[in-house]
């Protein structure tokens, strides 16, 4: 299985940050079975990292590996879309952009 490198950018210790962290952990555990590395970055502490990665929104997950690089915005509550963003839902090729 491909090794996953996921970076999660959050703003401070808010309820939304906590929810995103727990949600991503749960998804990784169930779907990626140890083949992953997850880094949580608080943009209040490391703004330069957010600048370098040009992050606008929090929470944002950046899937750095495997390629292609993908970005997932939001608190990860819509699990199906998270899987889609991580390229784990290969059977439905739907565009990633939600026009809502």
């Amino acid at each position: 299985m491909n090794r996953y490198v996921l970076k999660l950018y959050v703003t401070g210790q808010t309820a939304r940050s906590q929810r995103a962290i727990e949600q991503l952990k749960a998804i990784c555990e169930s779907e990626l079975n140890q083949h992953y590395e997850m880094v949580v970055i608080d943009v209040l502490e490391r703004p330069q990292l957010a600048e370098d990665e040009r992050i606008l929104a929090t929470p944002t997950v950046v899937k750095e590996l495997p390629p292609p690089i993908r970005r997932i915005i939001g608190d990860l509550s819509d699990i199906e879309r998270v899987l889609l963003g991580l390229d784990l839902l290969t059977h439905t090729r739907v565009g990633g952009h939600d026009p809502a």
Partner: peptide, 27 residues
């Protein structure tokens, strides 16, 4: 730099804010 980036548009998976942008501006 908050200009559009090449590649796939981001996937929306729930509520978000622009905390990262604000942190970058303040920085």
């Amino acid at each position: 730099d908050a200009s559009p980036q090449p590649g796939e548009p981001p996937v929306l998976t729930g509520g978000y804010d622009l905390g990262a942008l604000l942190a970058r501006i303040e920085h």
